[in-house]
Simulated assay, not measured.
Amino acid sequence: MSRIWVKWKLRLGKYITVDEVVEKIDQVTADDLRNIINRLFGSGALSLTTLGPVKETVLPELKI
């Protein structure tokens, strides 16, 4: 774990607190994730497989 802190210090010039990391993670939106997915996998058709119950209200939010 200490290697990660050193890398952040070298890259950013300061140590990052856990609260700062959590704040950055909380700022990630569904659109951010969609953009990354499209960059990695293209905008072609994808399939989704789930195991166990899935709330029907969750699936429309994916819009991938």
Rank of each mutant, 00 (worst) to 15 (best):
D32A: 02
G52Y: 03
G44N: 07
I4C: 02
F41M: 14
L51A: 08
I64Y: 15
V6H: 07
V22E: 02
K63Q: 11
L51V: 13
I64R: 15
A45E: 08
L33E: 07
V58K: 05
S2C: 02
I25Y: 05
E61R: 10
L46T: 09
T57Q: 13
R11H: 11
L12A: 03
R3D: 02
E20L: 00
L40I: 12
E61L: 15
E20H: 05
D26T: 01
V54G: 09
I37Q: 08
R3A: 06
G44D: 08
R34Y: 11
V58L: 15
V54F: 01
V21T: 03
T50G: 10
P53K: 13
L46N: 14
K24D: 00
L33D: 01
I25L: 07
D19C: 04
R34G: 02
I64V: 08
L10D: 04
M1S: 14
N35F: 09
T57D: 13
N38D: 12
V6D: 12
W5Y: 13
F41Y: 15
K63P: 05
I37D: 08
V18Y: 00
L46Y: 13
L59A: 07
E61P: 03
L10Q: 12
V18G: 12
L48I: 12
L12M: 09
K7G: 04
S2F: 02
V6S: 04
T29N: 01
P60E: 08
V21K: 02
L12H: 02
S47R: 13
L48T: 01
N38Q: 13
T29F: 05
P53E: 15
G13T: 04
L59C: 00
R34P: 04
G44I: 13
D32W: 11
E20A: 03
G13A: 03
R34Q: 09
W5F: 15
K24A: 03
L40G: 02
D19E: 10
V54K: 02
P53C: 15
R34M: 03
E23S: 01
T49F: 12
T49E: 12
S2K: 07
K7D: 05
E20D: 09
D31V: 03
I64F: 14
R34H: 06
R34T: 00
G42T: 07
T50K: 07
L48D: 01
Q27Y: 09
I4E: 10
R39P: 01
D32T: 00
G44K: 02
E56N: 07
L46H: 15
I37F: 14
K24L: 10
D31Y: 09
E20I: 04
D26S: 04
D32N: 11
V58I: 15
L59Y: 08
P60M: 04
Y15T: 04
L33Y: 05
L12K: 08
P60V: 06
L62P: 00
T17V: 01
V6A: 08
S2E: 12
K63A: 06
E61Y: 14
N38H: 13
M1E: 13
L12C: 06
K14H: 06
S2M: 07
E61W: 15
I4Q: 06
T29A: 09
S2N: 13
R11K: 14
D19F: 03
V6F: 13
D26F: 03
L59D: 09
T57K: 14
L51H: 04
P53R: 11
W5Q: 14
L51F: 12
